[in-house]
Design a protein around this nucleic acid. Structure first.
Length: 756
DNA sequence: TATGTGCATGGGGAT
DNA sequence: TCCCCATGCACATAA
């Protein structure tokens, strides 16, 4: 509740937030607790504490207008005819801050009946018509965001029509991939494609995307709908939305893959144009001049590149693949030339519709569909050709927002891969590049001298360092698919030298090679020890590989895992005063302690004579890998497990990866151990009582179930009870303190108050 | 003896 | 069931 207090009752301030640029980034709030003094069954009034917060906010914001000084505004609705009316306030839509708009009875009635916009926004812009039934829809505010669905091909459907079309859709069609009609002239493809695009079978693809949203919308609570909409405005929100989930402002976007998009400052979702949504992602599949691999192979038959079974370099003589990195000054033969953008792709990419920043437009423009997407910077001044824009300068302008708004950077850390869906489908998720904008900024900032204008950084893949990778052997095992997709083809086991620049701009030359392994290959980079040491990397840290186009340079970034101390520090302020002893969240990001060498927490198993080879990461993971619950093992605890188990680390490594992935992708689901405990309810089946050592134990045959979250309060008379929210009507109900509710609980289940 | 090299093994994730 | 890949391990080479 710390972040989800009732909104500021000063309506104009709310109105400003509501209609302003979506910049607010707030942590996902918890449901508001019930009041100390409930007034019937309706939504409870704000607590004393939140009222105090209101006063503080008012003080911070200065005195309200004179018209409002006499009596605080109650109703959130700026158009309310009697905003200062007394009476219970009711919870309306969710605000960007995570709070809820609190409305007077009258306004809430309009909101609840879906006539809010018709009543109060009739004179406001943003009205459209349903493409199917012609119903008038307001698409210009957050209130009605759940009432319509944007169609990929343009237009909107009201929620009812969209649901109908979805219901009529064959399941197989739901997953159909749109067949795109590509313009011949890729130089004009932006405009022409948008114009020429037609869903192949009606609007199946768009309907699927939209109705995928609708499907959920029919099942989730309205507040969640609004939360999604609210998240859409958040930079991170874009990444949480499945394809086609275009809520507010979606009409300004062309992305149908927002969840794949990076989280970037100032609403990256608004400024990144999704090439894939425009069908460009399909282009190379039809255009044999584009390789499915980013490496332009110089063989006589470029079409062979599309054959996935064609092992790179297998049939080509090495000499035919020899090339020099086109950086001008390079003398290291890499044996390949990184594929660059098609020239026509780099030119004339209309950016007129894209938002601007610092005089430039940032676009997302993968040069090779099926690979990665790119950040490209285009000057908006038509007099200024794109080729005059230094990458570093522009990105520094662009990324300056990330400095201004630190919350964004927090979102970046959870950024989703920047690769397009095709590439993503080919690589295991753990290798998807999760390079953050901050890292991109870092990379771009390091290579101004090496990057030509129009340079584009393409995140390729990343890998968490295993103990072997970070060990003294100096061999970094490369994921096979990544190596074959992004690194030069090699036909001989000895491979070839590969020049890579690290984040500091230093060039390294690794030996890229493979070993025959079970009729397959095992790709490694040899000689990485100096580089890893210079970066102070350890097992558990992540190295990422990116490519700078059109130079075709490989750059190597890294990301260190958070230390446990950092994790603890992050969670400490959120712990309730009477919380259970500190235990890491189940989905903690297992850390390597390198960045906090002095922290004992960073080295939880500092003394471990049993397995000297296991990294701290593995040791930390071993603490968690005990039935999924962290073990109470204090810092420096000597592990008393028996001697080293062969391949023990093998079973730990992948779990570490899963932890990381879970941690990065499930932030919205993240609950603490204590919170999880609160939700556990005994199974319905009555337990049997067993006596062990004179103590009675209730023995359940089934595991506990997740119950509904309730709030326990004590009223003025000292009576304890709890409040629960109805699944259907969202109203809060007062219940006995000993009531155990199922996860889905409605007023009809309220046996304590049958009238409800 | 320490370090480097190449291959084998098998756990476990993907299909 | 396949096969990727983390790691073990034997052998080679260097110090």
């Amino acid at each position: 509740m710390s972040s989800s207090g009732p909104p500021n009752p000063i309506a104009p301030a709310h109105a400003t937030v509501l209609t302003g640029t979506p910049m607010s980034v707030q942590p996902q709030p918890k449901p508001p607790p019930p009041p100390q003094q409930p007034s019937g069954s309706a939504a409870p009034p704000p607590s004393q504490q939140t009222q105090t917060q209101h006063q503080q906010q008012q003080q911070q914001q200065g005195p309200p207008p004179a018209s409002l000084q006499q009596r605080p505004r109650i109703c959130f609705n700026a158009h309310c005819k009697d905003p200062k009316s007394e009476g219970p306030r009711r919870r309306g839509w969710r605000l960007r801050s995570g709070d809820y708009a609190e409305l007077c009875d009258r306004c809430y009635g309009s909101f609840e009946h879906g006539t809010f916009c018709e009543t109060f926004h009739s004179e406001v812009a943003g009205w459209r018509k349903c493409e199917a039934c012609g119903k008038r829809l307001h698409c210009g505010c957050i209130v009605s965001v759940h009432a319509y669905a944007l169609l990929d091909a343009g237009g909107v459907d009201c929620i009812l029509c969209a649901r109908k079309s979805y219901a009529a859709m064959a399941p197989s069609q739901m997953w159909s991939t749109p067949t795109v009609h590509m313009p011949q002239n890729v130089a004009d493809r932006k405009d022409s494609y948008v114009k020429s695009w037609r869903p192949p079978t009606g609007q199946i693809s768009s309907q699927w995307r939209q109705n995928h949203q609708l499907w959920n919308m029919s099942t989730i609570q309205s507040d969640l709908q609004q939360r999604l909409a609210y998240e859409f405005d958040r930079p991170s929100g874009s990444e949480k939305l499945p394809p086609g989930r275009t809520f507010i402002h979606a009409q300004e976007k062309k992305s149908d893959d927002m969840h794949d998009r990076p989280t970037t400052p100032a609403g990256m979702g608004q400024i990144i144009r999704d090439r894939y949504a425009n069908g460009l992602g399909q282009q190379t599949s039809m255009d044999p001049t584009h390789s499915s691999t980013p490496y332009q192979r110089e063989g006589p038959n470029p079409n062979s590149l599309h054959d996935p079974s064609h092992h790179v370099g297998e049939s080509d003589p090495l000499s035919s693949r020899k090339g020099i990195i086109s950086d001008g000054g390079s003398t290291v033969s890499t044996g390949f030339k990184l594929d660059s953008h098609h020239p026509s792709i780099l030119k004339d990419d209309a950016a007129s519709t894209l938002p601007t920043m610092g005089g430039y437009t940032i676009t997302n423009y993968p040069p090779v569909p099926g690979r990665s997407d790119h950040l490209r910077i285009i000057p908006n001044n038509p007099q200024q050709p794109p080729t005059t824009v230094p990458l570093s300068v522009v990105q520094k302008q662009f990324y300056s927002h990330s400095v201004i708004e630190p919350n964004y950077q927090a979102q970046f850390r959870n950024g989703k891969p920047r690769m397009d869906p095709k590439a993503r489908s080919e690589l295991l998720p753990r290798y998807w590049p999760r390079i953050t904008d901050k890292e991109l900024q870092h990379l771009s900032g390091e290579y101004p001298k090496n990057s030509t204008s129009n340079s584009v950084i393409t995140p390729l893949f990343e890998k968490m360092l295993s103990a072997s990778d970070a060990g003294r052997i100096g061999r970094l095992v490369l994921p096979k698919k990544c190596a074959e997709a992004y690194f030069p083809p090699i036909s001989q086991p000895e491979g070839l030298p590969l020049k890579v620049q690290d984040a500091s701009g230093k060039e390294w030359v690794f030996q890229f090679r493979f070993w025959p392994n079970n009729n397959s290959r095992m790709y490694v980079l040899e000689g990485v020890t100096p580089c890893i040491q210079s970066m102070h990397l350890q097992a558990g840290d992540t190295v990422s590989f990116s490519r700078i186009d059109p130079e075709g340079k490989l750059v190597m970034g890294f990301r260190k895992t958070k230390t446990q101390e950092q994790i603890f520090r992050q969670e400490e302020p959120t712990k309730p005063a009477n919380a259970a002893p500190n235990l890491p969240d189940v989905n903690v990001n297992v850390s390597a302690p390198d960045s906090s060498p002095n922290s004992s927490l960073a080295r939880p198993n500092k003394v471990n004579t049993e397995n000297k080879d296991s990294s701290p990461v593995e040791q930390a993971a071993s603490k968690i890998d005990k039935g999924g619950v962290a073990q109470k093992e204090g810092p420096g605890t000597v592990r008393t497990s028996p001697g080293p188990v062969k391949r023990k680390a093998t079973s730990i490594g992948p779990k570490i990866k899963r932890f990381r992935i879970d941690n990065e992708e499930s932030m919205e689901l993240k609950i603490t151990w204590e919170e999880a405990q609160e939700l556990l309810r005994p199974p319905l089946k009555a337990p049997s009582v067993v006596i062990v050592d004179g103590h009675e134990f209730e023995e359940y045959e089934e595991p506990p179930v997740l119950g509904r979250k309730t709030y326990f309060v004590t009223d003025q008379s000292g009576e304890n009870h709890q409040w629960a929210q109805c699944e259907d009507c969202s109203k809060w109900r007062k219940l006995p303190v000993d009531a155990l509710l199922p996860s889905k609980w409605t007023c009809s289940d309220n046996k304590w108050d049958p009238e409800r």
